[in-house]
Nucleic acid binder design. Structure first.
Lengths: 205, 205
DNA sequence: ACGATTGGATACCTTCGCTATCCATGTTAG
DNA sequence: CTAACATGGATAGCGAAGGTATCCAATCGT
């Protein structure tokens, strides 16, 4: 298919597709002549993935490119993909200096018995949040965090369950990505509804 | 205190403080004369809250204003605050038309036995995510979602536990806001680390 | 053969979150 | 008292992000 069909089938305008090509989010089509290229279903699929990450989840184009690059690179070892790349998603800028709560996060991970890569960006995200909450007067220590972490184990187990019946490693990697990133707003939505319910249960007459 | 002291103590530049005043994020100080105003600790506290929401969590200025307005309005009935306002946080634009998965979300909420306001934006967020994931070929139905929802109940219970020992309703409302919004990246970070750990546990030799 | 489409390049546009500059009024140190 | 400096208020500008619009020459379909 050529670009106009790709545009029609994906709902993304031709100029935007060109923009994604320029930004390296989408691989160029197969050249059939000097000024003509042919696209296939993988491009269509990729394009829908891009729109899901940027539109639904609100990732920046730059972050989306990093995530997609990591998807290409780590198709074999799925869990590395998740740990290494997606931690940087919610951070706006790179934090050059080390957060004061870093050591505390380390001891929490140890207490949990988790095997987590030393340089996983999720560690820094966690440390930053702790520091930020404390500076605003919200007490947040190991005792509070530990039960949250146990529940996170449960969530992770559910996540992994959904990758079991996928023989194709490429498809597994893509689904892992989708589940990790796109499910985030849904999980937070469930949390908010559960909060409302629990609040009503506790305080209602 | 006057604006320069507010600036020094908060680490926010005077021009930015003026910008927040203009945008209605920060209440004007008490006028002491025609061209002079006095600020107090509530302004400082509010300013730190604004920086936490916009900087740490990445909320837009417009969303932050909505959230803060809701904080003012619903200081008494804390749980309403959470349900009604924060659902719109992760959405970029207003979705005018109803999502096809709306009915499904409704039956899920019913099956869970949750009391959730009919117009809670979290419902729409959940429905959108379902639709989006499905269009990308990821199966996502009631059976998959239900265990996630049960874990969300656990998270909500932990959240509410942390509001118990706060007699001042204003402080309780503010902490509810901070916990709901600022803890989100931390929870997602825990999830990613737990995924990495669980993946290693299942697939490692 | 000829109008429509394509790839490729470049310029431009809008929104967001500040930032810089002006200016008239106020405060304050000497 | 007065001169230097700070303040509130208004307006204009800036840089990044995410597209969009326009040109152009080559090429395709008929």
């Amino acid at each position: 298919m050529r670009v106009s069909e790709l545009s029609r089938r994906s709902g993304v305008s031709v100029t935007t597709i060109k923009y994604y090509l320029r930004e390296g989010l989408l691989a160029p089509g197969r050249q059939t002549s000097a000024t003509q290229a042919e696209y296939d279903d993988r491009h269509l699929r990729r394009l829908r993935l891009i729109r899901a990450l940027t539109g639904v989840r609100g990732l920046s184009v730059a972050t989306t490119r990093e995530v997609l690059d990591a998807l290409e690179a780590h198709t074999g070892d799925t869990h590395l993909l998740l740990g290494l790349t997606l931690g940087s998603v919610s951070l706006s800028g790179e934090s050059a200096e080390q957060d004061p709560a870093t050591g505390e996060v380390e001891s929490l991970v140890e207490e949990l018995g988790w095997h987590v890569h030393e340089s996983a960006p999720a560690r820094a995200t966690l440390a930053e949040t702790l520091t930020s909450l404390r500076s605003l007067g919200v007490p947040m220590d190991r005792h509070v965090l530990l039960p949250y972490a146990r529940l996170a184990e449960g969530i992770a187990a559910l996540d992994l369950d959904q990758l079991d019946d996928l023989p194709d490693p490429l498809e597994a990697a893509e689904r892992a990505l989708l589940l990790t990133v796109l499910l985030e707003p849904a999980l937070m939505a469930l949390r908010r509804m559960a909060q409302e319910n629990e609040s009503a249960r506790r305080h209602a007459p």
